[in-house]
């Protein structure tokens, strides 16, 4: 009993410490983001295309750092059962379009064809739009980063019964039978993907699963080694 309460206290301290560290890391990152956004907006003068390219590089990398910090904080919250969602009526189809747009540059850079498949206009859903978009972005970025050369990624949103179903299909490496069992585990990364993207943490799908389940939905995937994968989630209306 004593051990259990000590463990609870330790978990609480860890969550608190992670929260403080995340805040300290987020502060300079939000400053960098703001400064670069102002430069790119042209407020301080016209920039050359090359200057814009460099600044977009800073912005992309800053966004990656912000996402890493957010993932660490989310992990700590999930561990401590403190992942809370702010649900509001939002449009899933709007978020899908935004998510695809956000990754158009990365797809181009990776020589990958990213496209929208069927995107049905669905009724508004009560959800945490930021967190749901985070899950979509995770699916799409995985599909682009772990794809083959000149690969394809197709994103879709359809109504199935009483659910909205989002799917992201790729022509990538596919997932081995051994990997399938661990794919949603915390800090798990398949051996074959580490050399492709060395800086990943293996938290994206772990967090995605927690967000979708907390939202009352389901998350799943189908995959064949060497042929590609399809990751989906459903949310009830």
């Amino acid at each position: 009993m004593k051990n259990k309460s000590k463990q609870k206290i330790d978990e609480y301290k860890l969550t608190e410490a992670t929260s403080v560290i995340s805040h300290q890391l987020k502060s300079p990152l939000s400053t960098i983001k703001g400064y670069v956004e102002v430069l790119l907006s042209g407020d301080l003068g016209k920039l050359t295309p090359e200057q814009k390219k460099y600044l977009r590089g800073v912005l992309t990398n800053t966004a990656q750092m912000i996402a890493l910090v957010r993932d660490l904080l989310d992990m700590a919250r999930i561990e401590a059962s403190q992942l809370y969602l702010q649900k509001k009526s939002s449009s899933l189809s709007k978020i899908v379009r935004e998510a695809v747009k956000d990754f158009s540059l990365l797809a181009k850079a990776k020589n990958c064809e990213l496209s929208l498949g069927a995107v049905e206009k669905l009724p508004l859903l009560k959800m945490d739009a930021i967190k749901i978009k985070q899950v979509m972005l995770n699916f799409i970025s995985n599909a682009i980063l772990y794809n083959k050369r000149k690969g394809k990624v197709v994103v879709s949103l359809v109504k199935k019964g009483k659910n909205a179903v989002f799917c992201c299909k790729d022509t990538g490496l596919g997932i081995t039978e051994k990997e399938k069992k661990k794919i949603f585990s915390k800090l798990y990364r398949g051996k074959r993907v580490i050399p492709m993207v060395p800086e990943g943490l293996g938290l994206g799908l772990f967090i995605a699963k927690a967000i979708i389940e907390k939202s009352g939905g389901k998350i799943w995937f189908e995959s064949k080694e060497g042929e590609g994968s399809e990751f989906c989630f459903s949310l009830p209306f």
Partner: peptide, 8 residues
């Protein structure tokens, strides 16, 4: 939240 907001 600063990191989720654009200064513009």
């Amino acid at each position: 939240v600063k990191t989720e907001f654009s200064i513009n």
